[in-house]
């Protein structure tokens, strides 16, 4: 009986939500509110202005490049916080540092799979402006492959392969690289992070080296995300 008011409240909220949802325009309708002049501008002008077929990547790394730089800084802060809390305190956590797995199947399969996953991650990063993907998605795949290595072979061997200092240098260097590319726009006489407006050659649309600074920024973001993920997981796994 005590739960009756809560139940009635949930039913009332569900009713209101269902009512609102029934008024929502159907998926892909021409007169949907999301289909406004902003969307039309991006879909019509984007290919001319930034010279790449993937509109999503163009918005993330070109039109909204400044926002993406802020997001990269968020990753930086996350790793900094994890390092501040966990580094040098592996003994204070309740459980012991993670040990390596002794499962033969797991070791052999991951040894065979990891190179292909890494190639796919690099592909998604460098072709992010031509096909679906981009720096964030590809960097996550690349970081995920290293996380698989960490889980199977343990933090000791992971740190031997990729010392924590290297990961931190890659993390910081990628963030610095983003700012450097942005400053290039100022050097060329336009705004911070300017691409075509600063006279950066856009190349042939659809080719690997096209889209001006978008390719360079995507590369930096990919390295940064991969380094962030592996640094975070190594700190969490202990042995640092």
């Amino acid at each position: 009986m005590r739960q009756l008011p809560a139940f009635l409240l949930v039913v009332a909220i569900a009713y209101v939500l269902a009512l609102a949802l029934s008024e929502a325009p159907a998926f892909g309708r021409v007169d949907a509110p999301a289909r406004n002049e902003v969307m039309r501008f991006y879909l019509d002008e984007e290919c001319e202005q930034s010279g790449i077929p993937n509109t999503v990547t163009a918005i993330i790394f070109d039109y909204r490049g400044y926002d993406t730089m802020g997001e990269a800084t968020v990753l930086f802060t996350a790793v900094g916080a994890a390092a501040a809390v966990l580094a040098g305190h592996s003994g204070t956590l309740v459980a012991r540092p993670m040990a390596a797995s002794d499962d033969v199947i797991l070791r052999m399969v991951s040894r065979m799979v990891i190179p292909f996953v890494q190639i796919f991650g690099i592909y998604v990063i460098v072709y992010g402006h031509v096909s679906p993907g981009g720096g964030f998605a590809g960097g996550t795949i690349l970081g995920g492959s290293m996380a698989l290595y960490l889980f199977v072979f343990g933090p000791k061997r992971t740190v031997k392969k990729l010392p924590l200092a290297w990961g931190e240098i890659a993390d910081g260097a990628a963030a610095f690289w983003y700012v450097l590319v942005g400053l290039g726009g100022i050097l060329l006489g336009a705004n911070f992070l300017a691409n075509a407006a600063a006279g950066v050659p856009l190349g042939v649309r659809g080719q690997l080296f096209s889209g001006g600074t978008i390719w360079l920024i995507g590369l930096g973001v990919g390295v940064k995300v991969a380094a962030t993920i592996i640094n975070l997981l190594v700190h969490l796994a202990g042995e640092t």
């Binding site: 993937n54 999503v56 990547t57 993670m98 998604v124 679906p132 993907g133 981009g134 964030f136 998605a137 996550t140 795949i141 970081g143 995920g144 996380a147 889980f151 993920i229 975070l232 997981l233 969490l236 796994a237």
Partner: peptide, 20 residues
């Protein structure tokens, strides 16, 4: 784009973070 990120981040890295 979202699908690739969801598969790599949601199914991959988030699961590993929780497991650790």
């Amino acid at each position: 784009d979202v699908a690739i990120t969801e598969a790599a981040l949601g199914a991959g890295v988030t699961t590993l973070l929780f497991l650790l």
